[in-house]
Each structure stands twice: as C-alpha cells, then as structure tokens.
Amino acid sequence: MSFLKFHHVFFMLLALAAMSAFMIPPRFTDPGRAQVQGIFEPVSKPTRLVALWAKQRFFSEPSSDPRTPAVVGDENQRLRVTLANVSAQLEQLKLVNRDRELLGDVRDLCTPVAVTGSDPGGRDSLSTAGTTLQGIKPGMKVLYPGGLVGVVDRAGATGSQVRLVTDRGFKLLGRFGRFVTRNDGNVEFVRIATDPILFTGQGGGILLSSNLTTRDFQSAGIQNGDWLTLDDRDWPINLSGYKIGRVVGSATQVGSPLFIDVRVAPSRNLSELREVMVMVKN
C-alpha cells in the first residue's frame, strides 16, 4: 500500500505553483505556456468581437459628421505618427548615415495579427493569433496605426502574448513633442528640448515619469495633449520618434516637491485593439 495520499500530491502541486510564481524566473516557465496559450481563441475571439461591437453600438457618443470619422481619424492619426516618426528618423540619419534603407513607413516591416483577448489577470497584455509559424518571436516590437503597443513577451505554435507599454514595470525612454503651424501654414512636428525621460508603465493604460524636475517641466512648456515619442537606444532606430501617447496629467510629487509626476496615456485603449502589427523585420 502506498503512503502517498491525494493531499500529499495536492500540497506538492501547491508548493510547485508557489515556487513557479515567486521564485523561478519567467524565462524558464514562459516557453512552455507559450505553446498552448492560444487554445482559448475559438471562444475568446468571437466574444471579444461581440463585446467590441456592443461597445461601439451602445456606448459610443453619436457624431453629427456625415463622413466616417473612424476612417478619417485613423488616417489622420497614422499620418501624424508617420510624420513624427520620419522627422525623427531624418534627424537620426543626419548623425548616422548608415541604415538608410530603413527609412520610410515601418508598416512595411510589419505583419498584422488579430488580437484574440486581453489579460484575464488584470495585467496590461494582449493575446494574439500570431504564432511562431508566422515568424513571431519574443522581443519583437508591436505597433498600431496610433503608435506603439508593446513587445512580444512569449510566442508559440498556437498564439502569442504581447506585453503592453502600459503594463506595470514596462520601461522606455521618450521625448516630448507637439505639432505647430508655421507661418506658411504648414504643420511641423517639433520635439521639445528635454533629455530622454524614463517612463514606466503603471497598469490601467497609463505610463508615468517621476524623474523630471518641476523646473525642467515648466521651462519646456509641456502641456496636456503633447505627444510622447520614443527615444530609446534599446529599440530599433526606425522606431525612433514613434508615438507612445499623449500627456494626460501632471502633478507635483507630494514627497519631493522639486519633482513632478507626468502621466501619459496612449491615444486609444490598447486593450481594446482588434488588430496589431508585429515588426518582424528591422
């Protein structure tokens, strides 16, 4: 007769789960779950599409504009992102003459993949239908027409997980900018003269910077609505100047009044995207 009872096995499973959750680094456990994480797609994808339709149908504000605002808005947004991006690329290429072949719309380097669900555990991440068979690999950058989405965290044969830039602990360097109308009527994207600023994801669709001094913030004249664009050497050079989000608020830190908290949010709720573009070439 075995001395091993069910509760022994169960407590071993609990101990294993606790070790995996608290002690074992995710890089050892992620490859396994990446292979099977897409199995819920047959239920989650239609559910998501129905929820998206219902939200647009019942909870969106009515518009008096007879044109299709979604199409015009998306195009406008995409052109602005491209303009800011290309301006920054040109700036970089003045310094680095190589990588000339990478100039242009980064969408040509991307593969579109459908979003099948968002994180059921309260984190900022997306499940996508992109698989390793399509060339999706961990670490690839993910975009949408309105800016950056995040990074592929794990990829497998059935789907992949994208960690959003707003997820807790996600770090990147960015620089502020805004569109200004010149005297000749042309619109130009101008980067505000500050050093690259570290932003950290806070969850709930927000990025926060806490290391900008109040004096620098005020002298740069940063306002709500200004763009935060990427300026991070760890990212591909052709994403330099790509839009991350807009400034949505700022407040002096309670503990250290010389510093200011700047809050940035992406233009759209990234958790509600229907499709994203994974940058498979760079």
């Binding site: 789960a17 456990t29 994180d119 555990g121 960690r163």
Partner: peptide
C-alpha cells in the same frame, strides 16, 4: 481541489502574471 488548481493553471496560460500564481490562489 484538483479542479480548482487546474482552473488556476489554465488561467496562468493566458495572463502576464508568472506561471503558478493563479493555480496557487485557486488551490487555496
């Protein structure tokens, strides 16, 4: 017990949290 633990393990497959966190929680 096994059913709850397995549910958590399945939820762990699709979340950004580390593997085992929900398995542990649902087991408890």
């Amino acid at each position: 017990l096994l059913g709850c633990f397995s549910l958590g393990a399945m939820q762990d497959l699709v979340t950004q949290h580390p593997l085992g966190l929900f398995a542990l929680a649902y087991g408890l």
